[in-house]
Each structure stands twice: as C-alpha cells, then as structure tokens.
Design a protein around this nucleic acid. Structure first.
Lengths: 285, 285
DNA sequence: ACGCCGTGATACTCCACAGGTATCAGGGGA
DNA sequence: TCCCCTGATACCTGTGGAGTATCACGGCGT
C-alpha cells in the first residue's frame, strides 16, 4: 500500500478540472499519451474508476469528485511544506500577513504599529489580496496569517481569534436621495433604482443573474462606486478607502462583521503564536 | 518551481524521526546511499539545509523542524486522499466513526439507534481506538467522523459540534474511605495514599515522573482499576464500563467534559453532513 | 454515404533517475 | 594505534516516465 505521488495527484487534478486529456496535457507541459497512461495507472492503483470516458469528453465519477477535492487539499499541503521550509531556512524570519486590500485598514495599522514596537518580534510582510483569496494563501503556505471577515469568508479549517466587531454602512453618492438619511435598512438599499448592487463571480467563474455590474476585483468595484454606478454595503472600517464625493450611511439591520485573525491549525510556529497574541491583546485594549 | 514528491517527504520524515540515515533506510526498505543522496538533493531543491551532520548522528536545523511538521501533515493529506477515494469508489457507502473505547457509551448508543431509524442514511462502522488516536485517524482518512472530548483531545484543525457536557467522577474501590463521600474535590483525589493516578506516555513515548503506574492503553488502565491499584477521574458517562466492586463519586471542581463530534473541515460529503446533523439534533432533543 | 476532424488509447523507443554494491573519509573509543 | 561506526562518493543497472507515431471510434459536415 504505497502512497500516491504528488505527480499523480497533479495530473489527475489537471484532467479533472479540464475534463479533457489534451488540454490538461498542455497545461501540464507534457504530451497526451503519458497523461492517459498515468491516469489509468492511478485508477488501477486505487482500484477505482475516476473518470467516465464516453467519447467527446470526460466526466468525473463520484469517486473522482472525492479525489479532486482531496487531491487539491493534499497538493496545497505539500506546497505549503516547501514554502514554509524555504522561508524558515532563508532565515528572513519574516511572517506574511494576508488581508483584503482596503479592509480593516485602521486595525491593520494599529497591529503593525504594535508589532513594530514589540521588541524581538518577527518583521511582517503584508500581502494585499482580492476577496476570498486568503484561504488559499494560508493553505498553500504563501501566507502565515490572514485577516478575514465573518460571515463573508469561509473560515473552515483554520484557527481564528476575533479581533473586532463592527456594523456595516452603505456607500452612496453624496447627492443621492438616500444619502441624507442617518440610517438605512437592507430593504432600503435593495433594488435602489439606478444603483444596483454589484455581482461577484461564483466559484466556477459564472455570474449570478441580476441588474448590477459584474465585478471581479476590488479596484473594479472601487471605480464603479466612484462613477456612481453601484451601491455598496461594507463594514464601517472599510471606509478607509473613501471617495470624497460619497457618504457612508449605517445599515442598521445588516449583519455585524467580525474581523478575525486566522492561521493554520497546528502551526507550532512561535512567531505566528506571538503575532496572534499581539493582535488579540490589541483588540482587548 | 516543481512540487516535492511524497517520496522525498517520506524519506525526510524517516530520517528526521530516526536522526540516523542507516536506521531510516532500513525502515524505508532501501539502502543507505540512495537515502543520503535523496536528502541532499531535497536540500538542494529547497535551497535550505535541513540536517546538521556532525559525525555521530544527525540533528534537525530549524528549517528541518518546520519541514518535519509540515511533511507529516502533507503525507496525512495524501494518504487521506487515497483512502477516501478508494472508499468512495468501492461504493460501500459506509462512514467510519472513531471513538475512544468505553467513552460516551450511552451517547454513542443513542446516536447509532437514531441513525438506524433514519431512512437513507449511510451505514456507520464504529472504529474503537485508544486515547488520542482519533485525530490521526481523521487526518489520514481512516475515519470520517470522530467523537472527541474537550478539553482532553486536541481539536485543532477539525470542525466540531458540541453534543454533550458532563461532570467528572472519581472511580474508587467500594471499601475505600473516600468512597462513602457523596462528593470530592481534585485536592481530595490528588496523592491519595495507595491509589496513585496512572501516568500516560508523552508524545515522544517517555513517561512523566510520579508514583502512579505507567499505562499505554485503556484496557491496561481498566485492569489496574479493577485491581484497586489506581484512582481514576473520568467523565460520568464513561462509567458504562463499570466495575461492580467500585463506586463513582462526583468530583465537583474537575473541569466539565464536552463530548463533540469532529470531522475534517471542507469535507463536502453529504453523508458526513447528515450524520453530524443527526448527532446534533440528538443532543438538542 | 463518405471522409474528416477530434477524442482518448496503444505500441514502441529512449533516457533520466531511483536504487543497488563497493568503497571512501573521518572522528571516537578501546 | 587500530577499529568501528558514521554519512558521503563512485559507479553501475533497470525501471518507468515521457516522447513520437499511430490506431480506433464517434459525430458532423458536405
């Protein structure tokens, strides 16, 4: 019962994602026949059919779906091992903190200040990323800790510590009728004529239906807001990237947003532990 | 920047654990020279020194320590991928539930009864294991869910749902002076003459100092209790494996024990989800 | 109806590299 | 001093991963 090699997992993930041997082979930088052989050998080794080949394309079996999930996780773990080891060895003892660009700006500022004052703490590199990217960065070792936001981000599989709770505000052009109100409800901001809420892609890259503009990055969104083309409901602290000609109005019944610091469980790294302790202490102060 | 292969990780873990190339090679079933080469190639690939070879043995560098941690996790993930895929394919749609032998007996009974009554739920295989084994079983895919006990078990890295909270009791021979009390404190049961508390091995296999007998398995412990050689403080529900000539006295200031059901986060398996839902519903009823 | 394209599978060839054996180098301990 | 035990080196061998060429087959165009 010997272990699978990461090469086999990598090959399978490519085929399972492309559902096409030829394209998967190109993506992997090898020829198609070795890939075919590798996959059928993998199926033989596992004693399980992973792919349904009816001509014109390929489909995943149930077992194949399970392996796709598991293999992604396993590959992330292998890559994290390499990344963390390299960083530990190159003895830049710095930690990488991932956070959504623009979010929790003030909290981050205070955290970095506090760490700078703390003697003997590792230097922190800040890695600004797009929405939802943090989980992947943590999982494959490109980041050591991340600031994430409940209930938006998926915290499954991480250890977390709550840092900050806040309400949400709606961002509106200053001259908009709703902008003069001193509070709003979710009902008020749903289906505002001329200010539809932007649509983010699903995991598979497709967009839900609706009137709002399609958006993939925070900077796209920021520009649409500046143009007065979309309405935004965001945590109060995100106003750090404020637009001068817009106002923020509290949305009283929007769910509270908790900023948490997240890290890989079982990390055993004293540097991570001490950073988390500093952050937690900060929020209690 | 190609990925590490599981073979390399396996080799490194063997050397790092044995701190001896020869023994590691035997354990891996290969000769020593290829192992030496594989490790130094791994060091070259990572650009990091992993081992300090001063003649007479080998020591881990800091980076080596990091890799040992990470590699164990990565190997578990790879093995879990293979195990779960095999099980998914062989279409015995059963789930494996791991639990400490003897613990939470009544809760387990009710859970299994409830699942048996539930139409369309997957059959459950119960895997009885020793103290602390559950985490490893979940991590490498030998089990799908586990009953674990806070604060005893390390729940880091798992999703959990609380099922049951209970106090702890001391198990004493019926004729012991303390047995007639209707409650005890931790101070009462510490250093009871003639009834020292058993010592469990540490992670490295060594035992802490103390007067109590050394113990590795639950059945060893059960026998020592039956012989009246040791005193036991355990969750009240564990009395399911009761000894007729012993009594259980509540220890009022011992920390409460919470029985939780734990699973791998991001499991995406509907069978696991429905089992957890059943269990959670059970505890609310 | 026929032939063409695009799919994945096979047949074979080749060489890179994992693994084996033999041996070296050096530091402690008897 | 010698010997043993450590890990490293040198060199050889065979497996198997990867390449090229080709097949088998179904859909679809004309």
């Amino acid at each position: 019962m010997d272990d699978l090699e990461t090469r086999e997992l990598r090959y399978f993930v490519a085929v399972a994602e492309e559902l096409h041997f030829g394209r998967a082979a190109v993506r992997l930088g090898i020829a198609q026949p070795p890939l075919s052989r590798a996959i059928s050998q993998l199926e033989r080794r596992l004693g399980v059919q992973l792919l349904e080949r009816d001509r014109r394309g390929v489909a995943l079996t149930d077992a194949g779906g399970v392996l796709l999930d598991e293999a992604r996780g396993a590959l992330d773990a292998v890559r994290a091992a390499a990344r963390r080891t390299r960083r530990a060895g190159h003895s830049k003892r710095s930690l990488v903190l991932a956070t959504k660009a623009g979010a929790s700006h003030e909290l981050l500022q205070r955290l970095l200040d506090a760490l700078a004052r703390e003697p003997g703490s590792a230097p922190v590199d800040v890695l600004l990323c797009e929405v939802g990217e943090q989980a992947g960065l943590l999982r494959d070792g490109r980041a050591d800790v991340a600031l994430m936001h409940r209930p938006f981000d998926d915290l499954a599989g991480f250890d977390t510590e709550d840092l900050h709770v806040e309400g949400q505000v709606a961002i509106l052009p200053a001259r908009h009728p709703l902008a003069s109100r001193d509070q709003l409800t979710l009902a008020d901001v749903r289906d505002v004529p001329g200010l539809p809420i932007a649509r983010w892609p699903r995991l598979d890259g497709s967009y839900p239906d609706g009137p709002g503009p399609e958006v993939r990055t925070q900077s796209q969104l920021a520009q649409l807001v500046a143009l007065g083309r979309t309405l935004l409901v965001i945590p109060a602290s995100s106003r750090a990237w404020q637009w001068p000609e817009h106002v923020a109005v509290p949305v009283v019944d929007a769910p509270d947003v908790t900023t948490v610091i997240a890290w890989q469980p079982g990390s055993h790294s004293p540097a991570v532990a001490s950073l988390v302790r500093s952050a937690a202490g900060l929020s209690r102060a």
